[in-house]
Write a protein that binds this DNA or RNA. Structure first.
Lengths: 350, 350
DNA sequence: GTGAAAGCGCTAACAT
DNA sequence: ATGTTAGCGCTTTCAC
C-alpha cells in the first residue's frame, strides 16, 4: 500500500509552494494558467487524490447532505431519493441516507448521527408518529438548514416542500361526486401528518362544496398498508348501506381494498368507485386500473436538494422561502368511471 | 452561532490533558473509571460533538461505505438499500449512495467520487453495459475492499453476493415443463450481466434435462422494461406456433407482457403460462397473479454490508471468501398453473 | 493513569 | 502571481 500523495509532494515536484498548488487545484482565479496546467498534470501523473478530511477540517464544510426518511423501499420514496441523488451528484455533494422505520426514536438517533457527521444540510420526511421536532433544533441553532419534504412540520426556520394535498384530495373527491357518488368513504393515515390531515380537509370541503353531508363516520384511519386495506375492505363490506365511492390516501391500500372487495363480489367501479394516491406502478396493474393522484416524487427530490444547496450557497434565504408546492394531478382510470361502457364494467367485475 | 466545543475545552473544564480526554471519550481501557465519567459528563454538559474530520484525518478511516447501483427506484434495489442501511447504521457506518443510471460513464465517475470520498469499502451492482471493471482497480490496489452484489463481475480479489440464478431459472423452467409446456420462450436482458447469463443457462439446461429442444430462436433479449414487454408480446403474438410458456427475467417485463397478451385475447395461463423474476409487488396484483422467483433483496443488502464490515475489521479475509449465494425460491401463482380449474381459467381469460 | 508534543493534509490570512 | 505561516481537532507515541 503506497503512501498517499499530498500537495506537498506535488509542490516539491513542480517547484512551487503548497499554497499555490492548493490554489491551482481549486481553480483559484489568481493563479497563472500555465502553473495550473503544470500542477494538474503533476497531480494526475503522481496519482494524487484530494483529501476531503483535511479540507473539511479546515473549511468546516463537508459537502454532505443528510437525508432521513421513514422508509426507503416504497416506489414514491425511492423516486425521491433517485431525484435527490441526481442533483446532489451534479453539484458535488454526497448524500448520507438513513431511515427512521416510522419511529420517532430512530428518527432522533438518525438526527444525532447526522449531526455528528456534520452534514451541511438536512432533508427530512417525518416518521409516522413524530409529535415534535425538537431533535432538529440543534441543526437550526447551528444554522444548518433543515428542509422538510412530503411529511412536513411547521417551523418558521424550515422550508417545506409539498404537493397541494388538500387540492388533490378535493379534486379526487369531486371527481367521485361527478361520477354520481353520494356516499363516499375516506381512508387515511395518522392525522398528525400534514399529508393525511390535508387530504382529509380536501375530502371534507369537496363534500361540503357539493352540498353533500360530511360525517366523521365515513373517515377511517389506519396504517395504509396492504393488511390494513384488507381490514378496511371488510369493514366496508359490513356497512349498511355500503358506500358508492372510496378515496384512499395511498395506492398500496387502495389496491388491497380493491382486491378484497372484488373477491367479495363487489363490482368496481359500478358498485363502488375507488381512488388512490401516489400513482405507484401497481395502480396501472390492478384491474380495473386505479384512478389516483400522480405524486411527482423524482421531481420533489430534485427540488429539495436544489433548494437546500441554494440555502447553503446563500443564494436563497431559508427564512424568506417557506413552502414550495409542486403540482400534482388527478389521473383518471377505470376504477372511478361509473359511466363506463357495459363491456368495461363486465371486465372490471371479473 | 456559538463556537464548537473541542476536547481542549473539555480538558480545561475538568483539569486534564486533551490526550486523556480523547482516551476517555474513546473508552480507552487505561483511563480511570471516575475520570471517564467526569469527562463524559463535562462533554454532554458543554454540548461537545465529536469531530469526525479531525479523527478521520488522523486515523485515515472514514466509517463510510460507498454504494453504486444502476438505479435506486426499483422495488428490488430499494429493498437492498434498506437492508444495507439497517446494518450499516447499527455498526456505526454511513452509507454514501450513488446511481450509475445504467451507464458505464456514470459508473466510472461515481467510482472516482467514491475514491475521493475515501470510502472504507465499496458495494457495487454493475450497470447494464459495463464491460470491464478497471475503474475499481484503484480501490483494490489501495486495499479497499470491493464487493459486488446481484450484478457481479468475476475478480479474484472481490467478493460477490448473488442468488443461484441458474438454479432458480432451472426451477422456473422445469415448473413450466411440468405444467405441460413444450414450447417455451425465454425473455432476458443483456447477457454480459451474470444474472441474465445464468438465468439463460438455467433455462437451457432445464430444457435439455427434460429432453426438450433448446433453440436460440426462443431466446429474446431486451431491456426488460415495461415498453420492451409490449414489444416482446407483439413478437410472441406473431410467432407460429405461439409458445405455450414464457419465462421472463424480471417481473416488470413479465407483467407488461401478460397485460399485452391478455388484451390480444390470449388466455393466461391456459394458452400461455408466464413466469417472472423478483417477486415485485406488482406480481401479486396482476391477474392472474404472477408465478415468480422470490429474490431476497433486503437480506442481500444486509449480507453485503455485514460481509464488507467483516473485511474491514479483518474478521474475514476477502481473498478466501469468493462468492456468497443466497437462497431464492420459486413462488407458484396462477399465471403458470395450466392445471387450473375452469373457474380460474375463465377468470384469467377476462 | 496521565501528560507533552508532533503531525495527519489542507486552506486562508498576510506578506511579498 | 506566489510564498510563509499558522492552525483546523484529533490521536498516539513516548515519557513520567
Amino acid at each position: 500500500m503506497d503512501k498517499e500523495i499530498t500537495i506537498y509532494d506535488i509542490a516539491k515536484g513542480v517547484g512551487l509552494s503548497p499554497a499555490t498548488v492548493s490554489r491551482a487545484l481549486n481553480d483559484h482565479p489568481a493563479v497563472n494558467k500555465n502553473t495550473k496546467k503544470k500542477v494538474f498534470e503533476a497531480a494526475t501523473q503522481m496519482g494524487y487524490r484530494f483529501n476531503m478530511f483535511a479540507s473539511n477540517l479546515r473549511t468546516q464544510r463537508t459537502n454532505t447532505i443528510g437525508v432521513i426518511v421513514p422508509r426507503l423501499n416504497s416506489p414514491f420514496m425511492s423516486s425521491v431519493i433517485a431525484g435527490m441523488e441526481k442533483i446532489a451528484n451534479e453539484a458535488g455533494y454526497n448524500l448520507i441516507i438513513s431511515q427512521s422505520l416510522e419511529t420517532v426514536q430512530k428518527e432522533i438517533s438518525n438526527a444525532k448521527a447526522m449531526f455528528n457527521s456534520r452534514v451541511d444540510g438536512l432533508l427530512v420526511s417525518l416518521a409516522y408518529d413524530t409529535d415534535n421536532i425538537d431533535h432538529f433544533t440543534p441543526f437550526i441553532d447551528k444554522g444548518i438548514p433543515v428542509l422538510f419534504f412530503d411529511r412536513t412540520a411547521e417551523h418558521k426556520k424550515c422550508i417545506g416542500i409539498v404537493i397541494d394535498n388538500m387540492q388533490a384530495a378535493h379534486k379526487a373527491t369531486t371527481h367521485l361526486i361527478e361520477q354520481g357518488c353520494t356516499n363516499i368513504v375516506h381512508i387515511t393515515g395518522n392525522l398528525k401528518r400534514n399529508v393525511y390531515a390535508d387530504r382529509l380537509k380536501g375530502f371534507k370541503y369537496a363534500l361540503i362544496d357539493s352540498n353533500l353531508p360530511y360525517k366523521e363516520s365515513s373517515v377511517m384511519t389506519c396504517s395504509l398498508t396492504e393488511e390494513a386495506g384488507i381490514e378496511a375492505a371488510k369493514k366496508i363490506l359490513k356497512m349498511d348501506p355500503m358506500p358508492d365511492g372510496i378515496f384512499v390516501a395511498n395506492d398500496t391500500c387502495a389496491v388491497s381494498i380493491t382486491k378484497t372487495l372484488k373477491q367479495a363480489g363487489v363490482s368496481i367501479p359500478h358498485d363502488i368507485a375507488v381512488i388512490g394516491f401516489n400513482n405507484d406502478p401497481i395502480s396501472r396493474v390492478i384491474e380495473p386500473n386505479l384512478t389516483t393522484i400522480h405524486y411527482p416524487g423524482y421531481e420533489m427530490g430534485e427540488v429539495a436538494v436544489r433548494n437546500l444547496i441554494n440555502c447553503l450557497d446563500e443564494v436563497s434565504d431559508i427564512v424568506s422561502t417557506n413552502t414550495i408546492t409542486l403540482r400534482a394531478e388527478l389521473i383518471i382510470r377505470e376504477s372511478s368511471l361509473k359511466g363506463a361502457s357495459k363491456a368495461e364494467r363486465l371486465l372490471s367485475a371479473s
